[in-house]
């Protein structure tokens, strides 16, 4: 029954990878769900988070788990700056975010993505960099699973849970949810739309960059400035699968993609598995545009 064993191992690995995907996508989901506009440069902030983990490891020997905390702090600041530089002009004073605003931000952040990829190439060259982090393996029922993957997988699950508690239990979290549901009503309740949207964007960036740090464990080919060009689309796919603005959606979408990728690879060539993981978004958008979660 080697076949079954392989599938189960893939399943475990896929779920762990899915948790990390979920953390990355969660940042995008939060920003998209709250501000109603998409950050097309999302992938480049994953890339920056990954490089952050790499350099923190190089300088002080921090492992990706500790580096993610520093990354998250940076992300919070970067996110607020990003909000005022790219979204504020388009969103301020609006109770309904229309198609026009969506397109303007899509295009402007796409320009940002072009800038960041190329700044990354100048700064760090194109060659991949690996990060040394190997806390050993754990054997689960005859399967050997790398502990590094287990740790970052669980940490990803942890930050999604923390964000859920924050959004549902704190005053600020409730204000963010109110804003995301109805801007005009939130304003009537005394919510300051600009600061709420800016903080939500900051939190989204914090998760994105922390997720980038976690991802380094899974980047076997190393970190390059092009990391974002693969993982941003994966994040988009996950958010669409789980449903924009649904906080548990990131988790469901992430695990779906992680498992799909890893289990498909048992049966078909790896390239076809990736192609399928990307293309699954089209039937989902056509048939269930609100995502697979009810």
């Amino acid at each position: 029954m080697a076949e079954v064993g392989t599938v189960v191992a893939s399943l475990v690995y896929g779920v762990l990878l899915g948790f990390v995907f979920a953390a990355i996508a969660h940042g995008l989901n939060l920003i998209w769900g709250v501000t109603k506009v998409v950050n097309a440069a999302h992938g480049e902030f994953i890339m920056l988070g990954a490089y952050g983990a790499y350099f923190l490891n190089l300088a002080w020997g921090l492992d990706p788990l500790l580096a993610s905390v520093v990354d998250a702090g940076l992300g919070l600041a970067v996110g607020v700056v990003f909000y005022f530089a790219f979204l504020y002009r388009e969103l301020r004073g609006k109770d309904e975010i229309g198609l026009q605003s969506e397109l303007v931000t899509l295009v402007a952040t796409f320009g940002l993505s072009l800038v960041l990829v190329n700044v990354g190439i100048i700064a760090w060259k194109g060659d991949p960099r690996g990060l040394r982090y190997n806390p050993g393996n754990i054997v689960l029922g005859g399967l050997s699973v790398p502990l590094g993957g287990v740790y970052v997988g669980l940490a990803s699950l942890g930050i999604i849970a923390i964000s859920h508690v924050f959004l549902s239990r704190t005053y600020l979290g409730n204000a963010i949810r109110a804003y995301s549901q109805d801007i005009a009503a939130a304003k009537l309740m005394g919510v300051n739309p600009t600061s709420v949207a800016a903080i939500a964007t900051g939190i989204g960036f914090a998760m994105t960059m922390a997720g980038g740090a976690f991802l380094t464990v899974y980047l076997r080919a190393g970190i390059t400035p092009f990391v974002g060009l693969t993982y941003a689309p994966i994040s988009f796919v996950i958010v669409v699968l789980g449903g924009r603005g649904k906080m548990w959606g990131s988790l469901v979408g992430g695990v779906t993609i992680g498992v799909l990728l890893d289990v498909l690879q048992v049966f078909v060539p790896v390239e076809i598995a990736y192609a399928a993981a990307f293309l699954v978004v089209i039937p989902v958008l056509a048939l269930a545009p609100e995502g697979i979660l009810r």
């Binding site: 506009v37 198609l99 969506e102 397109l103 899509l106 689309p233 988009f236 796919v237 978004v281 958008l285």
Partner: peptide, 8 residues
């Protein structure tokens, strides 16, 4: 699909 959904 519209807006960002078409783009994705």
């Amino acid at each position: 699909l519209r807006g960002a959904y078409f783009a994705i």
